[in-house]
Design a protein around this nucleic acid. Sequence first.
RNA 1: GGGCCCGUGGCCUAGUAUGGAUAGGGCGGCGGCCUGCGGAGCCGCAAGUCGAGGGUUCAAAUCCCUCCGGGCCCGCCA
Length: 639
Amino acid sequence: MQVRTYDPMQKLKSSIAETIDKSGLAIRTQFEIPPSVELGDLALPLQQDAKLKGVNPSELSRSVSEWIESHPNPFVSESVSVGGYVNFRLDTKNVAALAWSTIRSLGESYGCHAPTGKSVIVEHTSANPIHPLHIGAARNSVFGDTLVRLQRARGHAVRAHFYVDDTGRQTAIAAFGYQLLGEPVPSEKPDHWIGKVYTVSSAIVEVLSAKEKLHSTPEGEDAAKLRSNIDEWMSVLSEQARLSPDLTDGLSKAMAGIETPQESISRLISEYEEGRPLAKRAIRKMVDYCLSGFKETLVRAGIHIDSFDYESDLLWDDSVGALLDSLEVSKYVAHDGRAMIFDVDAAANDFGLKEILGVQKSHVLPRLVLTRRDGTTLYVTRDLAYSLKKLDRADRVLNVIGTPQTLAQLQLKVVLYALGYKKVLEQIHVPYEQVELPTGSMSGRRGHYVAFDSILDEAKSRAKPEVAKRNPEMSAEVASELAEKISVAAVRFALVGVGASKKILFTWDRVLDFEANSGPYALYTFSRANSILQKSGKVADSVEPDFGSLKLPDEHRLAVLCARLPENVAFAADTFRPEVLSEYIMRLCDVFNSYYGKAPVLGAPTAELKDARLVLVRMVHVTLRSAFNMLGVPVPQRM
RNA sequence: GGGCCCGUGGCCUAGUAUGGAUAGGGCGGCGGCCUGCGGAGCCGCAAGUCGAGGGUUCAAAUCCCUCCGGGCCCGCCA
């Protein structure tokens, strides 16, 4: 049976390695890419091997290249020995043919790898359901979703999970306001409306409780602090009163009758945790409205969540209770009243986890409080139970969570490992840096944020005139669809195009400048390739080309680049770095743009050349389309 | 006090995992290219002490140490 080829470059490398192995030189065949195209397509560095063998690197590389020259490999057109490297120039014809047969057989799935049978859960987004997704969450979503797509392309069975934090105090504050308003149907996009309810409720509660405290506080520093606190929240309130007068007014009136809102909120929390019907109805109703708003935004950005996991379910189905029972008897747990405190450092030392997790031995890991003195659970406790649930459902779990959570994620691993869940090592924190605004940090509570929706809207409204300018004959509807695609591409490229460890300073121009942004450029390149294929009037996939007629350096580069998609996907997936793929796309676009500008495809001098070029264009076309799919970028047929 | 991350031309960024061949791109600037498959394009030019200093090495943007600048974390918050 023929084994299906997924990765042409891999296949070709093994073939060359095999040829070299026959020489009996016994060298490692770890290929690299030379720093410049003039040097070749593949490089074999032999300095290490030369050292081990105690021979001169140049001599070794010369023997290898001489061997290849006298024992030809179909994929190598030339091998040159330079300073301990053997540089290989690949044979355009055979590389193109190999890439083409792979592309033709895989079609849209070109770039994907053989199924592994391994299951992966990617948890991402998981924003609090009390305000719209903002730009920071957008980075999480886009990054997380791209990871989902990449893991899938890697051959794993992947599911995207969203952890719904519905038992926290913040959620209760919003739900409390929602209850007071009579639990209405939101009058606008639900997450945006709930965001307002949350900000106003939060501000009123802050003001009322600060005022309350002020009564029993003697004049001095503390009182002054309370006063400035009141002032701050009053100004948030007046801002909201200006933006949404009815809502603010309604909530203020309803809240005025409540003497101790903090207590009411605490009661709501505990009633919800106990699963009391009224509390349950109000909170779930509000949360689900908010989630429906999230979904709308996510769908627009091409993001799909397979499972929304409610934190409250972990309490109700006693997952948390079971976890507490096993913690109770752990030798690392100390009790203080009903509070449980976990000695993370001792556990990490005992199990040798510092070494495994890359923590310095001398670094003392902070203890972790798992329950309050009154016995109630904390966020981490529920998160522990949630981790177990995720690990139960997949071979591997990727948690897309911001860098501020790094320590907490580490502690979580130690605790679960110490409880005997060794599989927790298969749960990986994939961190990303925050997005900052020029005006300072965002605050959901204060209603200060840039919503994901606004970014998409703004991108679209900037794209529209550009589309209209270039396509005056296009109907408004089609133009709008196109503008939508372009804006999603621009936003996704902007958020995933830089390494996750880099902070992003969000400015409208940075993200939405269509000259600077690589998204529209890449889509444009694709649409040009598409247009050449359309114009040809041929079905490129049924053409049997003679790749031997491709002589231009750019034709060679394009064939080799197309063959490299799968290995780039593998690397991006395995290192959790989508930017690897976006860099690859840019490289391919650069070469292709330059190519079709100087080499006529449809007007090629001979029929053979025309066919070969046409197929090459098709290869670029399919390769780009696959790569876009993996980045979650929609593809327009024309622009 | 302890720990983590970032620091590459005016601005943004790749390269750091596995040290190696002239540090790649983009924006902005300057100069060209619409009789050719659509100019969101192409071609060219100027612009760099890879934060600083030491060390290891035949070889350091990359590894080690110290320091500087920016950010984050070390809650009976989430």
